[in-house]
Amino acid sequence: MSQPIIISASPHVHSDRTSKKLMYDVVIALIPAFLVSLYVFGIGAFIVTAVAVISCLLFEYLIQKFLMKTTVTIGDGSALITGILLAFNLPSGLPIWMIIVGSLVAIGVAKLSFGGIGFNIFNPALVGRVFLLVSFPVQMTMWPTAVENNATIADAVTGATTLGMIKEGLMFGDTMTTISANLPSNLEMFLGLSGGSIGEMSGLALLLGGIYLLIRKVITWHIPVTILVTMAVMTGIFWVINPESYASPLIHVLSGGALLGAFYMATDLVTSPMTKKGMIIFAIGIAVITVVIRLFGAYPEGISFAILIMNAFVPLINTYFKPRRFGSKIKSKIV
């Protein structure tokens, strides 16, 4: 024997799933949505994404190396995902320095201050995004409109998101009928030709990636499906009561960050509950808060806030929704 025998405790074999593979699966799942945004926003989407990814990786490296003096973990893919997701939640024309600030907040404040991957309570990308949204509401709500078949958008025309238009319209007494004249059709929204953040363009692309994640078992159906169904049901009830004051459930599900949030942000392993039961409670919470903010709050879109709020509840959910201990309740009696 060339090398000494290894001693370790059982088990002595290991499945070939690694956290790195999980992370890169998420990256792969995000590719279709990225391609759509490139098609829609052109080079702007590319710049925003590239800046976010590079600065996230760089901040992770610098902070871990020089401030925390721990091992650098930029290779594990988590900072990469944070970067992409952050970019996907930003409008494509955002000034570069703001993207960098967002990345710093996401990585430095939301992730590394808690000790790095696995310890953060809040989804880093969303913290970065909300930080920017609150700090720079003007730039964060300047949406370049979709430019069909156009590779570059030198003069970005600011448009509004579907939800933004609905919110403003309703606030000033318009009815849904008049508002919907200006809205993109449901099919357009599904394919990705409305205004909005880079990543939330195309429902189709997001669904594709989501299905990939489900197949690869990176995520389970519980969170995304529960969020979307609860949202649809809630908005549906309001819509049935008064279709002139409330948008249809389909608009709510397809527009804004609902799909992006449900499939990629809420399902973030670190910041979502551990058990299926917990996940469903978590998802219902997100959906309810999102709908409440969308319908009654000041912000047109609420899913980022909703996810962050429910992130805070995850430890509590994990405490109270534990898996059933084997033998803790005896189902069958002796015959």
């Binding site: 404040v109 939301a110 201050s113 808690f114 309570i121 809040f122 913290v127 909300v130 930080f131 609150v134 808060i289 409440v292 903010i293 009654f296 709050g297 000041a298 912000y299 609420g302 980022s304 806030f305 909703a306 962050l308 709020i309 992130n311 805070a312």
Partner: peptide, 19 residues
């Protein structure tokens, strides 16, 4: 870290603005 958590919690609660 406690202050930071409180800060992020407060940040998340900003979503309720305007309710």
């Amino acid at each position: 870290i406690n202050l930071l958590v409180a800060g992020l919690l407060s940040l998340a609660f900003l979503g309720f603005t305007g309710l």
